[in-house]
Design a protein around this nucleic acid. Sequence first.
DNA 1: GTCAATCGTATGTTAGGACATATGTACATC
DNA 2: GATGTACATATGTCCTAACATACGATTGAC
Lengths: 249, 249
Amino acid sequence: MIRAVASLSLNIDRSSPVPLYHQVVQGIESAIRSGELVPGTRLDNEIELAARLNLSRPTMRKAMDELVRSGLLVRKRGVGTQVVASQVRRHLELSSLFDDLQRGGSKPTTEVLTFSHTAADERIRETLQLPPDALIYHFTRLRKMNGKPLALMENWVRDDITEIDESSLGSRGLYEILRTAGVNFRLANQRIGAVRADDEQAVLLQAEPGAALVTMERTAVDDTGRQVETGRHAYRADSYSFEMTLVQR
Amino acid sequence: MIRAVASLSLNIDRSSPVPLYHQVVQGIESAIRSGELVPGTRLDNEIELAARLNLSRPTMRKAMDELVRSGLLVRKRGVGTQVVASQVRRHLELSSLFDDLQRGGSKPTTEVLTFSHTAADERIRETLQLPPDALIYHFTRLRKMNGKPLALMENWVRDDITEIDESSLGSRGLYEILRTAGVNFRLANQRIGAVRADDEQAVLLQAEPGAALVTMERTAVDDTGRQVETGRHAYRADSYSFEMTLVQR
DNA sequence: GTCAATCGTATGTTAGGACATATGTACATC
DNA sequence: GATGTACATATGTCCTAACATACGATTGAC
């Protein structure tokens, strides 16, 4: 059986500050997304590819490792490496709703409903691992997209990172503010579920009482191990859902 | 400032078929989960650790790479590597509800509501990328846990993998059946949202009409690039939610 | 006393080589 | 003609060896 073998050619710029393996990742990824590499095609073997690009095998391999991890390629020992899917959505990212919407080309607006800088209650102190006398920012926001209410968000943020005020929350996303303040998010635990809207939620989201809402609770940790933020969000189910790609390793 | 540096010691078995780097991963991971390595502690540097375990630096590094990727460790150039969090839940896995429940120690039961082996309609053919004359298995199941209805599941599975019948679906999970038939799942695209239960769903799930349900749509791809299965599930929101850990890379 | 240059340290990147092992195919055998 | 074995092939693992680069702390100059 003769199988199609792709002979993709990439340009590697050795004077670029971008690591070689990453240039390869980007090159292959864009070749897949552009349709140049159709799902199912087999790639040349690692050694061949490395030789063609004047790279060492470990470097080539590291690039392919990343692509395998992200689900674009599949390796089979003794057989070869082939393209799996072109439609891999980006892994559910550590981003905020604001980022997502803005990237989607929409114009999100934010209304700050409540805002306080007070002592944290015990549940929050525990979640964010704060000492008994710690202060936190606590606020609720209503996010609209194109004038239509989309999400109701309640967040608690530790106050030893940066100063947060009502007006900045109105114009920028929370994660954007925190990132600007030097926070590097590393991981987040989140839980997605559903509830029926109570009267207050229904009014704010301009939905019927009892309408289905998607709920999301999240606690985010930065690269120093601090629990930076925790929040409880509710989205109109008719306007929002969580999409993700799971990759088996 | 003097920081605690952990001097963990592991046993590496060079005669084991388990790769060395993976033995290190397992060792450090269990040390973290057991509390031996407290979040915040700094590890010795890569070269030091490698030397102590009689491993090369690349091998040690590969092990630490995995741990960083899974969110247990954090590296900072010029500084060192430290333990982030002990409470990382396992990444949302490519598993079925059946697997999850069984692992949780519960006894799931499955009731097959409908079952057919027929021609695929266009939508399904497109989703699973099948030719016009393809046949598929189509079935709906009701899953209970401890006698209580939990999920209503509708699935479409291509029929060129293994024979599926009603009775095996009643006793085993779908993913278990497919894995036994040699399917190696690689990735899945899924979407999580919410709806209100319609009358039929309410009756089957023993919930009130209009109750909130968590919905999940998923299409799974195996390591040969085939779209193996697609499905639409609805869970009682009061009994089920999706938990996951996101890792920023 | 403050600030900037310097230096040690740890991770980041790349190279090149060697051997192990799973897979599929082609060939030889029965 | 069916079956099993041997071989080529491609990935999997592991090693040694450098050099690059970012960060923190110390040192030195002003």
